[in-house]
Amino acid sequence: MRDLIQANYEERLSRYATLLHGTEPPGLAAKLGVYAQLLRQREIHGDRLWKIEPMLYPLMLSAETDLHLATARLLEDPRRAEGSVFAFLNFCRTNRENILWKAGTPPAEVIEAQVAALESHRPTINAIMGRRDRFFAHLDKKYFLRPGQVYDDYPLEGAAVIALVNAVIKVISEHQWSLKESANFHVAGFFEIGVENMVRNLEAGRRQNYPGQLD
């Protein structure tokens, strides 16, 4: 019995590691890096960013939607989705005494603290779920007629979404480290550098090909 629970736990954890840190297809950390750096470039350049390359605007919106949908999949109501991180933490609660970390049985207070850390982002989670359920996955009549209204009804700050995603990654990383004293490298930084370089190259190309446009 204990061996089966341990194997189930480790298999679930491995799946989350792939969903978070995979690169083919890009995992949540990669999506986070792209979105976070696009937001930073917007802060640096303001609306001038769209002059550097007009396609960066729809690209940023697409990256935002992609990140929201990927995050929503991992934070479903555990009663609806076995793959939810909340379902995983419920599994850990129920089977805690049959799970073995390097230092022994997971302390109950650690699991509860992880649940609390995610729940502290509940307003952001609810807004992401609202956008997904009523606009991106199933288009309500209200938003068919007025699509922009969804952003007013479910407001989201980029920084809040980034904080939530980092909280999810931290929970899974804590389990990886506690199990094997190792965890996946957070690949978001590589993607942030890639986006930064892309914008720099686009700016250089715009200056060379269309002198005076950025002045």
Rank of each mutant, 00 (worst) to 15 (best):
K102E: 13
A103Y: 05
A103P: 01
A103W: 03
G104S: 11
G104W: 07
A108M: 08
E109D: 13
E109L: 08
E112I: 04
A113R: 12
Q114Y: 11
Q114H: 13
V115L: 14
A117C: 11
L118T: 06
S120Y: 03
R122A: 12
P123G: 00
I128C: 06
R131E: 03
R132A: 09
R134A: 04
F135A: 06
F136S: 02
D140Y: 06
K141M: 11
K142Q: 12
L145N: 11
G148M: 10
G148D: 09
Q149K: 11
V150N: 01
Y151P: 02
Y151H: 08
D153G: 05
P155V: 08
G158Y: 07
A160T: 12
A160R: 14
V161W: 00
A163C: 11
V165D: 02
N166W: 00
A167L: 08
V168D: 01
I169M: 09
K170A: 07
K170W: 01
V171K: 01
I172E: 03
E174P: 00
E174A: 10
E174Y: 02
L179A: 12
L179H: 02
K180F: 11
S182V: 05
A183M: 11
N184I: 00
H186P: 01
G189E: 12
G189S: 13
F190G: 14
F190H: 14
I193K: 15
I193P: 03
G194E: 14
V195T: 14
V195G: 05
E196I: 06
E196C: 09
N197G: 13
M198E: 15
R200E: 15
L202K: 08
E203V: 07
